[in-house]
Design a protein around this nucleic acid. Sequence first.
DNA 1: ATATTTGCGTCAGCCATGTTGACGTATTTC
DNA 2: GAAATACGTCAACATGGCTGACGCAAATAT
Lengths: 170, 170
Amino acid sequence: MADANILNAGNTAASAQFLREAEIRRGIELLYFGYTNMVRGADGLLDRHGLGRAHHRALYFIARRPAMPVGDLLALLNITKQSLSRVLADLQTRGLVIQAVGQRDRRQRLLELTPEGAALEAALFEELRTGMAGAYAQAGQNAVTGFWAVLTGLIPAADRPMIQELQAGL
Amino acid sequence: MADANILNAGNTAASAQFLREAEIRRGIELLYFGYTNMVRGADGLLDRHGLGRAHHRALYFIARRPAMPVGDLLALLNITKQSLSRVLADLQTRGLVIQAVGQRDRRQRLLELTPEGAALEAALFEELRTGMAGAYAQAGQNAVTGFWAVLTGLIPAADRPMIQELQAGL
DNA sequence: ATATTTGCGTCAGCCATGTTGACGTATTTC
DNA sequence: GAAATACGTCAACATGGCTGACGCAAATAT
């Protein structure tokens, strides 16, 4: 009896630990596959335009926050300015993005999409929208709320305001 | 009155559409930032071992499914064998991974972690576990279920069995 | 039994996108 | 007027994808 209790206690703890790890791994894997499938959704269209995923990310955020200064985009993307500059140069050469001198601070360069850039971004968004809307519909509104909650928890608290500002008022 | 109703109907539809797009964009952004923050969690440890993210992915899946044939890993990672071969060569050179000839099919090469490989994978997992466990705890079990549901919906139905098999019995 | 297909490896080269380091210039702030 | 800031640029390099071509051993089909 005592022995059985000891064994049970051990098994229960081990089992709980085991479940925890399985649940964590499940989250890691679904996050990996979910993310890669989402971004893959736009690859065909990007290819047809001779652009890559880095271009897509820049277009996306410029569409999301028009008149965003270069420094803000750098902070969002978390890459070096040298990496971003190649991408922005491509986008400007192709007439998808333009820069304006900031009024408040004339050192800033505010990024904007041209009409062509906006049209392309809309088409790229549509590719992502389809998949995401399907997943939302399948999972239900309650699941969507949980989806957001867990993902928000994965983001360092220090970065959350930046992302919330991105989503503010939209 | 009739005019007001017409306007309301229009506004309601536009508003619903607007909300839908905002919700989709929110999901896209949280998925992007959540994913990148998760993977970034292991970068320090990887750096100290002179490995990259591609090595991490391979180690992860080999740990998850010991004795996995090369072809299965290729299907999971969705990259070319040439890309994978560089990564596997590195891992074998460093004594983290070994290959065994398949018994059922002797053309297959079954991938296994060495004890050193398993130890490194465990340490890498621990880096991810911290963040994921924190997010789960903050969001709650119900949210976790929704998180899984939405992510599953993002994965093409054809790929889901492969991923479920990965998680089966664990 | 031979022909074909499959699983895997490899050589060679290219592309996209990230990095570091150094330096320049206009503008703002102290 | 000096220092800090926002941005741009040149150069070199690393990582991790890709295509194409070829080879071999083992399994499978005819």
